[in-house]
Design a protein around this nucleic acid. Sequence first.
DNA 1: ACCTGAACACCGTTCAAGT
DNA 2: ACCTGAACACCGTTCAAGT
Lengths: 195, 195
Amino acid sequence: MRNTRADVVAAALRVLAGQGLESCSMRRVAAELDVQPSALYHHVPNKQSLLALMADEIVRRVRLASTDPRALCTELRAAMLAVRDGADVVATVEAFRLGSSAVEHRLAELVGADGGRTLLLYTFGHTQSTQTHRQAAEFGALLDSEPGEGSEPGTANAGMGEQPDDLDASFARGLDIILAGLAAAPPRERILPRV
Amino acid sequence: MRNTRADVVAAALRVLAGQGLESCSMRRVAAELDVQPSALYHHVPNKQSLLALMADEIVRRVRLASTDPRALCTELRAAMLAVRDGADVVATVEAFRLGSSAVEHRLAELVGADGGRTLLLYTFGHTQSTQTHRQAAEFGALLDSEPGEGSEPGTANAGMGEQPDDLDASFARGLDIILAGLAAAPPRERILPRV
DNA sequence: ACCTGAACACCGTTCAAGT
DNA sequence: ACCTGAACACCGTTCAAGT
């Protein structure tokens, strides 16, 4: 049975979630589909386009209907964190569409153009940071427990400084600050994002 | 004449600024120094470490002495934008040190831990977005055609939607919003970033 | 329409060996 | 201490050719 473009995107997302962006090569995605690497180029012009489709799929998971900007940002964050390196992929792709991103547009409807963009880019920044930091912590945990014999638990947390997770709460507090700023000095334009 | 570690970092930054992150391979950096690729591993354990040293060098260009958080963020932004893909490199590396970054620490002294982190991660998000967007615009200016996408209507503008540069002003307005939020609801802790 | 097979010009990293 | 040369296991992309 032959593959469709949706199959390629789905396979790529499986590889991304499982092995991360570094290992998400065209060749590995092809292997995931039991197909030669060159076969992918029948469904997708290049790797960048594939990444864009993957980002779209991740973002599609957030419900844009919400009327609460805080909920919207939190959901976007969760959707990105749900996939390994999801924040990097989504943030990079969404940067291309800065004026025409669906999420930005929705946020702009709710809090104005400047507020919407500020919320969006803060969300990207914090979530990328969170994801990188967590992956580094995971990796450090592996290095600590890897050397089979000799070193038993009790070794001080080598490398990482942050507690298990202040990070979701930290994100929420930043959101509060921005929303407080918007309440304090409401924007002049309310509906359309700046083109 | 033999090279030192600083030479390697300098060469890597030259390649980054000139050809971008994609082309900043160990092999190209080695070529920049007229040396075999393997020679680099005498100065640096791997590519990641080299990128970290490059990020440090970029960040060192910002004066931490400033007492104005707005100036600090603007300078950090300028330093990252001054090097091709500088925002990506710095943001990725700084995410590792979330609790212990020098810039974050300084910002936390000025506006509290939550405000500092919010300002920093907003700055990363907006600057990465700006840089990606500008590079895409540059690229689009050369090859002006795109395989059918058609997700978001409203922008008839072929290629890029944003005007030459709202982006610096957009950044400044976001900064205003966050600082207004901090003024409206001042943080309880003033000096130390949260560990 | 969808795929194979082979090729091209690249990667990061390791390691024995030179000076 | 600093570097070479060769190797290993990878990349993205193209293209003629098959079905």
